[in-house]
């Protein structure tokens, strides 16, 4: 393209850089030189559009002929036929258009000049002049009071929307709810999700029970329940009392080898539910924090830091397992004022 070889010429007679050889030679397509190839391409494009039409008809037939009956196989058939019809309808159009562009439309490359993004100097000057004129007209430069007043008004007015929004969006903002759960003294432990109270005798060796507080069925079907359950779920395990290591301040929190721990991970709150009976390890399937149930649910692997909170349990007169109290610390993930 450019054959400037003046100032870059060195003493040796060689330019400092190679010069652009310009565009490569244009290569003709078969369809450009052979009328038969051109005709064939045209037929192919038409056939592809035809496939699209068939696809559309097919999807319409599928829509009206195949009614999903609610079974897995029926729904799958409807999904498959409808989807294939749509796919053919779309792919037909797409492939046809591209093939048309590639094989039939002119493939001579064109060159377009670029211009620098920067505005020319005179345009810049004119632009600055217009802004200056505007500022002068507004008088803002001379009237400082106006500037301050306008800015204050503009800066303050979003409060009219932000304050009502922010104050209501967090509900009652009472974050101390984190530290209480539905458990209380004497509350029976019941199976999750069926709600059957559990006797100590039911919990034979090696069993793991997923536990919720024994509340009424109405409460279990209310919406508040999900939020309560999110804090109250407990895992109940019986192991050989000889395997159990109990901290001195937690003696009496278990009953005959039966221990209850919060199921909410102290990492980021997933339900820690994978109990490996032989090792007494509890594994969280989300991030693989592993807790040793035999040893105060201390962390043995993974990203959690704190042991799972323990629910102190005992039995009532009828032999049912009951909570001695609520948890002694907030369940779930750590937060800033957790210990306050």
């Amino acid at each position: 393209m450019s054959d400037e070889k003046s100032s870059t010429e060195l003493t040796s007679g060689h330019p400092e850089k190679f010069t652009d050889p310009g565009m490569p030679e244009h290569r003709q397509r078969r369809a450009d030189v052979e009328p038969a190839a051109s005709k064939r391409a045209e037929r192919q494009v038409a056939a592809l559009f035809g496939i699209s039409v068939i696809g559309t008809i097919g999807s319409m037939v599928a829509y009206f002929a195949i009614r999903p009956d609610g079974t897995t196989a029926g729904t799958r058939l409807s999904n498959l036929t409808l989807g294939l019809g749509i796919a053919f309808a779309l792919l037909g159009i797409g492939l046809a258009a591209v093939h048309w562009a590639k094989a039939i439309m002119s493939d001579h490359e064109v060159v377009e000049e670029r211009h620098e993004q920067r505005s020319p100097d005179d345009v810049r000057e004119a632009a600055v002049q217009k802004l200056d004129d505007g500022i002068a007209d507004s008088g803002i430069a001379r009237r400082g009071v106006l500037k301050g007043a306008a800015l204050s008004a503009l800066a303050l007015f979003p409060l009219t929307i932000a304050v009502p929004l922010v104050s209501s969006v967090g509900g009652d903002w009472n974050v101390s709810k984190f530290r209480h759960t539905r458990w209380e003294k004497g509350m029976r432990l019941a199976t999750d999700p069926t709600g059957r109270p559990i006797r100590a005798a039911d919990v034979t060796m090696g069993n793991v029970f997923h536990v919720i507080p024994d509340v009424s069925e109405e409460e279990r079907e209310s919406h508040e329940w999900i939020t309560e359950k999110a804090k109250a779920v407990v895992l109940l395990v019986r192991m050989d009392p000889r395997d159990l290591k109990e901290a001195p301040d937690r003696e009496g929190w278990s009953y005959d080898g039966i221990v209850a721990y919060s199921k909410i991970c102290t990492h980021v709150g997933c339900p820690v539910a994978l109990y490996e009976q032989q090792t007494h390890h509890l594994l969280c399937p989300c991030h693989q924090s592993t807790f040793d149930v035999a040893d105060g649910a201390k962390v043995v692997f993974g990203p959690a830091h704190r042991p799972l909170p323990q629910l102190p349990i005992e039995i009532d007169d009828e032999g049912y397992l009951v909570a001695q109290s609520d948890f002694h610390e907030p369940v779930g993930p750590s937060y800033w004022e957790r210990l306050k």
């Binding site: 796919a87 492939l95 590639k102 439309m105």
Partner: peptide, 19 residues
């Protein structure tokens, strides 16, 4: 044609996957 056609190709491939 090329870019418009490609839209249909993309949609078609997604439909194929959905089906």
């Amino acid at each position: 044609a090329k870019a418009g056609g490609f839209f249909f190709v993309v949609f078609g491939v997604i439909a194929l996957m959905g089906a």
